[in-house]
């Protein structure tokens, strides 16, 4: 039936994302290995690329931190399942935990008790986007704690302008160092307010590596930030080298006259992203993410 088919599709995207990286990330890592001339940086990228190959070949999770399950749900007006979707997503996560296996990563902040199945209050995290059409498109992100912990929010004085944004991004990278498992995909959210900037920054890390903002001035800023952040020499795993970010993606919104929020979000090289599209009859396609 329809609901079982939705759970099956979600489980497929969860398990595929845990095991296999998208092509854009793998080719960017290979290009990075060619660019590096430091022995340690190359050694680290060799380990990363070998790990990617072995995980895929043997169907094992790429990283032991299988992340916090996060879903960006684009729900078409005509899709037949609506309010039940949250429960179905939680069921898919619960069933995937022993089958992939995923590490149980959901802890009660007061008692320290691990729920054991990656679900709990507010988890899986779900963001809802109503869209036209009769399809359901779900983008899945399993982000580890190391990269989430270096997320930053800067509430700049608006007169700091673009230079202030550059400063904030570089400061975030230096403070993060090797902690988020670089090479990372770096997302920047500008404007909108504190919460909106953070959401935009995280969503920006979902974009395909190598893609540029449709706004020419923002695309230019992305290129410049990428060059800036890599020129710091922090390198893979923070042990020195030319590749800190595989790419920088910037998204923006209008701001309050008194505020210039700048949020920075980093996604580790093990960028567990996935995408699945469901048709109204329950049939689905799991897509290459990004």
């Amino acid at each position: 039936m329809l609901e079982d088919s939705i759970v099956a599709g979600l489980r497929e995207v969860i398990s595929r994302a845990a095991v296999s990286l998208s092509r854009d990330v793998v080719s960017a890592l290979k290009a990075a290995r060619e660019r590096e001339d430091s022995f340690l940086a190359r050694e680290i990228l060799n380990s990363i690329l070998k790990n990617i190959e072995e995980a895929e070949r043997r169907g094992l999770p790429l990283c032991q931190d299988t992340g916090t399950p996060t879903f960006f749900v684009h729900l078409g007006d005509g899709f037949p399942v609506r309010s039940r979707l949250g429960d179905l997503i939680a069921r898919a996560v619960r069933e995937s935990t022993p089958s992939v296996p995923l590490r149980p990563n959901t802890v009660d902040p007061w008692t320290g008790r691990n729920s054991g199945d990656n679900t709990g209050r507010g988890v899986p995290v779900i963001r809802w986007f109503p869209v036209e059409g009769d399809e359901l498109r779900v983008i899945y992100l399993a982000k580890g704690g190391g990269s989430e912990n270096v997320s930053r929010l800067f509430m700049l004085n608006p007169t700091e302008g673009v230079e202030g944004i550059r400063r904030a991004v570089l400061r975030a990278a230096i403070d993060a160092g090797g902690k988020p498992c670089p090479p990372v995909i770096l997302g920047v959210g500008v404007g909108g307010g504190a919460d909106a900037a953070l959401e935009a920054a995280k969503a920006a890390t979902l974009r395909r590596v190598g893609s540029r903002s449709g706004d020419p001035a923002v695309a230019e800023l992305e290129e410049r930030l990428l060059e800036d952040v890599n020129s710091l020499g922090i390198g893979p795993m923070g042990l020195g080298g030319r590749t800190y970010a595989l790419d920088v993606h910037v998204d923006w919104m209008h701001r309050h006259p008194a505020s210039l929020p700048v949020a920075v979000s980093m996604l580790c090289w093990a960028a567990r992203r996935g995408e699945v599209v469901f048709h109204p009859d329950g049939s689905y396609e799991v897509l290459e993410p990004g």
Binding site: I48, A55, P61, L62, C63, G144, G178, M237, W269
Partner: peptide
Amino acid sequence: AFTGGASVLA
């Protein structure tokens, strides 16, 4: 340091 994320190798 062990390479972060290289879980299968470990």
